[in-house]
């Protein structure tokens, strides 16, 4: 079965975008290029307004991912749950496509009787354990997020702990928006663990604007750049084959 590397953007924000392209359009663009977008809305005492909520759900829906709104205390657990859920969802899609080729028509796992789903799910679980995963983390650093950033950092360290327990390899990179002078700033290049994040995060400056759309656009192009680089062409071929018999 063909899975390749799963590509995810994890967007952590606390409200609505207010500058640049429509983030939902950018999410759709990401999905077209095989990148899934998950969104986590972080609340503290404040509640996210309807408009913000709509945008959070819209981005995830268009980006083929999962969204969740939580209080910051529950962030760690949510980050890992959302990432895993989105992985399963993507892999499920791959497996469903494969099923359609075997069974014909538009059959999905849900169209099979429950007894027959067990083995398929085992394949999905197995893939989830072994597939290579790239997660680009996009952190909203607008003013209202300032005091939530330490919690975000904790949650991200926790995420790398969870994902590194898998046998498949992981790579993370971290971007903040708005950046110091630009809309989006790269904080951390692709790395298998997020330990190095500790120092960078304390230096973050926060700004007033929330250019979510442009941030997503930039993130997608970062995935593309990576694809073009010779090193990754050699070591991490996108068209990897996982031989699985269903």
């Amino acid at each position: 079965m063909r899975t390749g590397t799963l590509k995810q953007i994890l967007l952590i924000t606390d409200g609505c975008s207010n500058q640049g392209e429509d983030p939902i359009a950018m999410a759709t663009l990401a999905r077209e290029q095989g990148v899934t977008i998950n969104v986590i809305g972080v609340m503290e005492q404040d509640v996210i307004d309807d408009q913000g909520l709509k945008e959070i759900e819209g981005i995830a829906l268009s980006g083929g991912g999962v969204s969740q709104v939580v209080y910051s205390q529950q962030l760690s657990q949510t980050v890992q749950m959302v990432t895993r859920k989105a992985m399963t969802q993507t892999l499920q899609g791959v497996v469903n496509k494969e099923l359609q080729q075997i069974l014909g028509g538009t059959k999905k796992m849900e169209d099979l009787p429950p007894e027959k789903r067990g083995e398929i799910m085992e394949v999905v679980d197995e893939l989830g354990e072994t597939v290579e995963l790239d997660v680009l983390i996009l952190v909203d650093t607008s003013a209202s997020m300032t005091h939530k950033l330490p919690t975000v950092k904790e949650a991200l360290l926790d995420l790398s702990l969870s994902l590194n327990a898998r046998s498949g390899s992981n790579r993370f990179s971290v971007f903040a928006f708005p950046g110091k002078k630009v809309e989006v700033e790269k904080l951390l290049d692709w790395t298998p663990n997020l330990e190095s994040l500790t120092t960078i995060f304390s230096k973050l400056s926060t700004g007033g604007i929330t250019p979510t759309g442009p941030a997503i656009k930039e993130a997608i192009s970062y995935f593309q750049q990576k694809k073009r680089s010779l090193r990754s062409m050699l070591s991490r071929d996108d068209e990897q084959f996982f031989e699985e018999s269903i």
Binding site: M109, E110, G118, M121, V124
Partner: peptide
């Protein structure tokens, strides 16, 4: 609402 988690647990 998530059939895969149900099937995983059933397994």
């Amino acid at each position: 609402d998530n059939p895969s988690s149900i099937i995983s647990e059933v397994n």
